[in-house]
Amino acid sequence: MIIEQYVEARRRRYGFVSTDQAARVIRKMLKPADPALSDRELDDMVAALAVKNRLAVVFDRGARGPADGTEADLNRKEPPMRAPTETPDVAGAVDAILGTRTAPLSQTTPLSMSVVISLLRERTGTKRSDADLEGLIAKKAAVLDVHLSRNG
Rank of each mutant, 00 (worst) to 15 (best):
D34K: 02
K31A: 12
R24F: 03
V143N: 10
A93Y: 06
V116H: 07
V58K: 02
V94A: 06
R121T: 00
L37V: 13
L133A: 14
E134N: 10
M45L: 14
T109I: 13
V46L: 05
G99M: 12
A23Q: 04
R27M: 05
V143E: 14
P32N: 09
D43V: 10
G92T: 13
N75A: 06
K127R: 15
V25K: 06
L74T: 11
P66D: 08
T85Y: 01
D34A: 05
A96R: 13
M113F: 02
L42W: 02
L119P: 00
G92P: 07
E4F: 08
N53F: 02
T100C: 12
M45W: 01
G135T: 01
L49A: 08
I97A: 04
T108C: 03
R40E: 05
S38H: 01
A142C: 00
R82A: 09
L120C: 07
A9S: 15
P66H: 03
A103Q: 00
L49Q: 11
L42V: 15
P84G: 14
S38Y: 00
H147Y: 03
V58R: 02
L74G: 08
T126D: 09
G62W: 02
T85M: 07
A141D: 04
L119K: 07
Y14E: 11
T85K: 12
M113S: 11
F59D: 13
E78R: 05
A48P: 05
K140T: 10
D68G: 01
L111N: 11
Q107W: 03
E8N: 13
D130L: 07
D60E: 04
S114P: 13
D60Y: 09
V57H: 10
S38N: 00
T102E: 05
R27N: 09
D73K: 08
L49M: 10
T102W: 01
A93P: 12
T87H: 11
F16L: 00
R121Q: 04
V7I: 15
K28G: 08
R54K: 03
K31I: 01
D73C: 09
A131M: 10
L105C: 05
D34L: 04
V94I: 15
R150P: 04
R11C: 04
G15T: 04
E71L: 13
T70N: 12
A33H: 03
D89A: 10
N151A: 11
V115H: 03
A48W: 00
R10P: 08
T109W: 00
E71H: 06
M113I: 04
L119G: 02
L55D: 01
T87K: 13
D95V: 01
V58A: 03
A138S: 14
E86M: 14
R10A: 14
A22S: 06
N151T: 14
K31W: 03
A96V: 01
E86W: 08
V51F: 11
T124I: 06
T108Q: 04
E8T: 15
V143M: 09
V58M: 03
L30W: 12
A56S: 06
M113L: 13
L37E: 04
L111M: 15
R64A: 11
Q107A: 15
A9K: 14
P66Y: 00
A9D: 15
K77I: 15
D44Q: 08
H147N: 10
G99D: 06
I3Y: 02
I137Q: 05
D73T: 09
R82G: 03
A67V: 15
D95R: 09
R64D: 08
D44V: 13
G15P: 08
D130H: 12
P104Q: 01
